[in-house]
Simulated assay, not measured.
Amino acid sequence: MALARRGTRRIVVDGVEYRWHVSRRHLCCDYEGHTLGYVAEHATRPGTTLVVETGRPARLDPDLTPAGLVLPHEVATGIRTARARGWTPTEPGSPFTLQLSGIAPEQDS
């Protein structure tokens, strides 16, 4: 199922355009409640949706850095990792789920 255009952000990763947004629908349960997730898809030929679980709490703690923030370089890391693990974004199929709790985001140079 394709993402609604409204509320999505555009990102180009390795020359390919994708759309993404932080997902309230694809939050996963943990001991504290929910963890933060986002979804992405190919921008012009959406097929299989990527569902990324960050492993970070979705709730904001005023004493800590905002946990509900997903940065574009994190999305790029998730897309690259999913592609390396077999995600084919232009092919139809069930959502491709990726757990990123142990992967550090790449820093832009």
Rank of each mutant, 00 (worst) to 15 (best):
R85H: 15
L98K: 09
T81H: 10
A76L: 02
A84F: 01
R10C: 01
V39Q: 05
P89Y: 01
V70P: 02
A58M: 09
L36H: 08
A58D: 13
F96V: 05
V75Y: 00
R83N: 03
G93I: 15
T49I: 14
G47W: 07
G33D: 05
L64T: 12
V22W: 00
R25H: 12
I11V: 15
R24P: 08
R83K: 09
T97Y: 04
T65K: 05
T65C: 08
V16M: 08
H21D: 13
R9V: 10
T97G: 04
Y18T: 12
T97M: 05
H73W: 06
V39S: 00
G78S: 11
R56P: 00
E17Q: 08
T90H: 09
R80F: 00
C28F: 07
P62T: 06
L64N: 13
L71E: 15
L50Y: 00
R19D: 13
P57S: 14
E91C: 01
G33F: 01
R80I: 05
L98M: 06
G15Y: 05
V52Y: 03
R10P: 02
G47S: 10
L100D: 06
L27K: 11
P92I: 06
R45A: 14
T35Y: 06
Y18A: 04
R25E: 14
P46N: 07
L60N: 14
P62Y: 02
E32H: 10
T54D: 04
D61Q: 04
A43G: 05
R85M: 13
L69P: 03
S23T: 14
P57N: 14
A67P: 00
W20D: 07
F96A: 03
